[in-house]
Nucleic acid binder design. Structure first.
Length: 617
DNA sequence: GAGCACACCCACACACCAC
DNA sequence: GGTGGTGTGTGGGTGTGCT
C-alpha cells in the first residue's frame, strides 16, 4: 500500500481564517467511528516520527489505534508528500510538531489545532519557500490563501505551554542512520575498514552521539551484508562519475582494495622463492668473478639454501613491479620482519609440505609485536598440536602458565653467572645447513664403531668410545642461540608427541653407536649436532639424563620467549643435569659452592661429573 | 539469555627518518 | 643505496556492560 497515492484536497488541510494553520473538515467527535486522526471520508492522516525518537513506539501505537497512519517515509519536501512530522524535540531545518498534539487530540476525542503544536521556526527555514515545494504539509494554493502567508501564520502561533519531553538522544541505530552509514561506505569503499574514516563519520550530525568505533562495529556486524553495491572509484579512492555526472554503481565483486592488504601464503612463498633465486644468481656471478668466500681448503663455499639472505633495493623494486599487490616498502618490510626471522628456504619447505599434505599453507605470522616471542612462533612452526599435547599431559605440569615458567626460569637462572665461567664454547659453524653439517661431521669425525655400550650407561663409557668422542667438540651452547641452531627442518616433520619416544629409541640403540651414528640419528629427528653436543655436555654423556634433559626442554620450549631460549637450556634443578654454572661450582672447590652443588647433585653425579670433565672439558 | 553498542586490544602493513 | 629503528593507523578481532 502506498500512502502517497491518497489524493488530498485543499479542504483536508487548510489554514484557518485567522491565519493559524489548522486542519479543516477533519472529523472529530462524530468522526470517531473512523478514528480521531482522519480526514473527511475517513481518509487517515499521515504521520512520521523519526526512527530515533525515544517515544516513537508509544506514539505509533496511539496514532494507529486512533485511525491515523504512521509512515516509514520521511516528509519529503521535494515530492511534497502530505506527511506530518511529529517529534519529541525540535528538528533543525524541518517543520515539526510536538507529540502532545496526539495526546491532546485523543483527550479531546477530536483533532486539536495543529498550529498550536508547532516547534519554533527553524533558523534555516525560508518563509518564501513555504508556498512552494519546501512545505512539509503541502497547502494547495487554491485554498483559502493560507499558502500566501504561512510564514506569518507560523510566526503568530502562540505556543501552548506544553513541556516537551526532555532532550534525549537515543544511541540506538535506526534505518536512517544505517542508510547513512551505508551511503558513506558506498561513497568511500576503500575506507570501509578504516578506524579514522568511522571516527570522521561520528562527527556527522546524523551520527552524533555514536563513537567511530561504534559506527564501525555497526557496519561490520550488521550492515556489511546490506551494502549490495558501492560507487566506482579510482585507485586513489576518488569517485568516478558517468558522462551525465552521476555516480556509477559497482557490484561487490569489484570492491576496491582497502588501504592495507594482508600478505597471503602464496605471496610469502613468492617472496622467498624470488629471494633465493635472486641470491643464487648473485652467487654464481660472484663465483665467476671470484668474489665468493673460500673455506679453509681454499675452495669457494657452496651456496647455502638455509643462510640468511640479503637483498638490495633493486630486488624489492622488482618485487613491487612483478607483484603490484604490495609496494616496495611493504615487500621490504615483509622481508625484514618475517622472511629473515622465519628463513626463506624453511618457509618454502613448510609451504611445500603443506601442499603435499593437502593442507592450506599458512602465511608467516607472529614475528612482530612485543609478545611475539619464541612461544608463539614455535607453536606456529611445529603446529598447534604441540600445545594440545602439552596441555594434555596428565601431570600437574600442564597447569603451568607463562608466569610460572618465568619463575622457573628465574630459579634456574643465575643472574651473576652469565659469562663468568668464560669457557662457553662457540656454536660449531656448519656450512650448508644441517645436512651438510652432518656430512662434514661424519667425514671428519667418523671412526670405527665402538663395541656395545648397553642400555642405561654412558655413550662415553668405554675407553675406546671416549677416544672417539674426544675428536668431537663437546660443549655447551652459548647465549644468543636460536631455534635454527638447535633444530633442523626434520624436527618439524615429526609430531611433537613423538619426539621424546624417538629420542628414547635412538638412545636405547646406542649400543651400536659411534659418534657419527648418534649425530646422524639425532639429525634425522631434527636435532642439530651442536645441540647433541650440548646434550652430552649437560648430561655427562649419560643416556638417561640425556632423555631427561630432552623431555624437560621440550616441555619448556612452548613457554619460552626468543630471548629465553638460552635460559631454558640451563636446567639446574635436576640431579645428573649440569650447566656451566654448576661446573664452575665443582671446579672452584670452595665449600660454599660445594654446598650449593650438593643441594642439587648426588655424590654419584658429582663424582661422575669430575671424571667427565677430566676427559672432555 | 540474546542482541547490541561500545571500548579496547594486538598483529602488522605501510611509511618515514636517521645513519 | 643499504639498513635499522620506529611511528601510524589499518584489519580483524574480543571483552564488557547495557537494554
Amino acid at each position: 500500500m502506498s500512502f502517497h497515492t491518497i489524493e488530498y484536497s485543499a479542504g483536508m488541510v487548510s489554514p484557518s481564517s485567522n491565519n493559524q494553520l489548522a486542519l479543516g473538515n477533519v472529523q472529530s467527535g462524530a468522526a470517531a467511528s473512523h478514528g480521531i486522526f482522519t480526514y473527511d471520508g475517513g481518509i487517515p492522516m499521515l504521520f512520521f516520527v523519526p526512527f530515533n525518537d525515544p517515544n516513537r513506539y508509544e506514539y505509533k501505537q496511539k496514532i494507529i489505534s486512533h485511525g491515523g497512519i504512521i509512515t516509514d517515509t520521511e516528509p519529503n519536501e521535494s515530492t511534497g508528500n502530505r506527511i506530518i512530522l511529529l517529534s519529541s524535540f525540535n528538528i533543525r531545518g524541518q517543520l515539526c510538531f510536538k507529540l502532545s498534539f496526539i495526546d491532546d487530540s485523543i483527550k479531546n476525542n477530536g483533532v486539536c489545532d495543529l498550529s498550536n503544536y508547532k516547534y519554533q521556526i527553524p533558523e534555516v527555514y525560508d518563509p518564501s519557500s513555504i508556498s512552494g515545494q519546501n512545505k512539509i504539509i503541502k497547502i494547495n494554493s487554491e485554498g483559502d490563501g493560507a499558502g500566501q502567508n504561512d510564514a506569518a501564520a507560523f510566526s503568530n502561533v502562540i505556543s501552548r505551554n506544553v513541556r516537551p519531553p526532555p532532550m534525549r538522544t537515543s544511541r540506538r541505530f535506526n534505518d536512517l542512520k544505517d542508510e547513512y552509514i551505508l551511503k558513506q561506505i558506498r561513497l568511500n569503499p576503500r575506507l570501509r575498514n578504516s578506524h579514522k574514516f568511522f571516527d570522521g563519520l561520528a562527527t556527522h550530525d546524523v551520527l552524533k552521539g555514536h563513537t567511530g568505533n561504534s559506527i564501525r562495529s555497526r557496519y561490520r556486524n550488521h550492515l556489511e551484508s546490506r551494502l549490495a553495491y558501492v560507487y566506482k572509484t579510482d585507485e586513489d579512492g576518488a569517485l568516478i562519475k558517468s558522462a551525465d555526472g552521476k555516480n556509477i554503481r559497482e557490484s561487490l565483486e569489484n570492491l576496491p582494495k582497502t588501504l592495507k592488504n594482508r600478505f597471503t601464503a602464496l605471496e610469502d612463498f613468492n617472496l622467498c622463492t624470488e629471494l633465493i633465486e635472486y641470491s643464487r644468481q648473485k652467487y654464481y656471478e660472484d663465483l665467476e668473478s671470484g668474489a665468493v668466500e673460500k673455506d679453509e681448503d681454499g675452495k669457494p663455499k657452496p651456496f647455502d639454501l638455509y643462510q640468511e639472505f640479503t637483498a638490495p633495493v633493486s630486488f624489492f623494486t622488482m618485487m613491487a613491479k612483478t607483484y603490484p599487490s604490495h609496494s616496495y616498502h611493504s615487500w621490504r618490510d615483509r622481508y625484514r620482519k618475517f622472511v629473515r626471522q622465519y628463513g626463506a628456504q624453511k618457509y618454502i619447505d613448510d609451504y611445500n609440505r603443506s601442499i603435499q599434505n593437502g593442507e592450506t599453507p599458512e602465511q608467516m605470522k607472529n614475528f612482530t609485536g612485543k609478545k611475539a616471542g619464541l612461544t608463539r612462533g614455535f607453536k606456529e612452526l611445529i603446529g598447534s598440536s604441540y600445545n594440545d599435547n602439552y596441555r594434555a599431559l596428565p601431570s600437574n605440569e600442564n597447569a603451568r602458565d607463562d608466569e610460572t615458567i618465568d619463575e622457573k626460569i628465574k630459579q634456574i637462572r643465575s643472574s651473576d653467572y652469565e659469562g663468568a665461567a668464560g669457557n662457553v664454547g662457540e656454536i660449531q659453524e656448519a656450512e650448508g645447513g644441517p645436512n651438510n653439517d652432518l656430512e662434514q661431521v661424519i667425514e671428519s669425525q667418523s671412526q670405527p664403531e665402538s663395541q656395545s655400550q648397553g642400555q642405561g650407561g654412558s655413550v662415553l663409557e668405554s675407553q675406546s668410545t671416549s677416544q672417539m668422542w674426544s675428536n668431537f667438540d663437546i660443549k655447551y651452547l652459548p647465549q644468543g642461540i636460536t631455534l635454527e641452531d638447535l633444530f633442523n627442518k626434520n624436527f618439524y616433520k615429526i609430531a611433537p608427541s613423538e619426539i621424546s619416544s624417538k629420542v628414547e629409541t635412538i638412545l636405547n640403540d646406542i649400543e651400536l653407536s659411534a659418534p657419527a651414528l648418534l649425530l646422524k640419528s639425532f639429525n634425522e629427528i631434527g636435532i642439530n649436532d651442536v645441540f647433541t653436543a650440548h646434550l652430552i655436555m649437560a648430561s655427562s654423556g649419560d643416556i638417561v639424563n640425556m632423555q631427561v634433559f630432552i623431555d624437560k626442554f621440550l616441555d619448556l620450549i612452548p613457554h619460552l620467549q626468543e630471548d629465553q631460549l638460552y635460559d631454558g637450556l640451563q636446567i639446574e634443578d635436576t640431579d645428573g643435569i649440569w650447566t656451566n654454572k654448576l661446573d664452575s661450582y665443582l671446579l672452584s672447590g670452595s665449600k660454599q659452592d660445594m654446598k650449593k652443588l650438593q643441594a642439587i647433585q648426588s655424590p654419584h653425579s658429582i663424582d661422575a661429573r669430575r671424571l667427565f670433565l677430566e676427559k672432555f672439558a
